[in-house]
């Protein structure tokens, strides 16, 4: 009777040690903030052309 009681107690204690196995690992450099509207604008070829024109206008050698 006493052995059964201790056996059940041990099982109960061990059951309490159980934890979820699917751990959420931290994924570095995965942006968690709000979306920048500039990203959509950058995709347009017109914007790219505008920046290139600006560069050629002001930063190329004299």
């Amino acid at each position: 009777m006493r052995k059964t009681f201790f056996g059940a107690l041990c099982l109960l204690i061990l059951a309490g040690c159980y934890g979820p196995v699917d751990i959420a690992y931290h994924e570095p450099a995965r942006y968690m903030g709000s979306m920048d509207p500039l990203l959509a604008k950058e995709r347009s070829p017109e914007q790219q052309e505008l920046l290139l024109q600006r560069f050629n206008k002001g930063q190329t050698d004299r």
Binding site: P28, A29, R30, Y31, M32, G33, L39, E42, R43
Partner: peptide, 14 residues
Amino acid sequence: AAVCPVDCFYTTED
């Protein structure tokens, strides 16, 4: 960006 604990960095397509 690799070390940021709150992942506040992002890189634009440019």
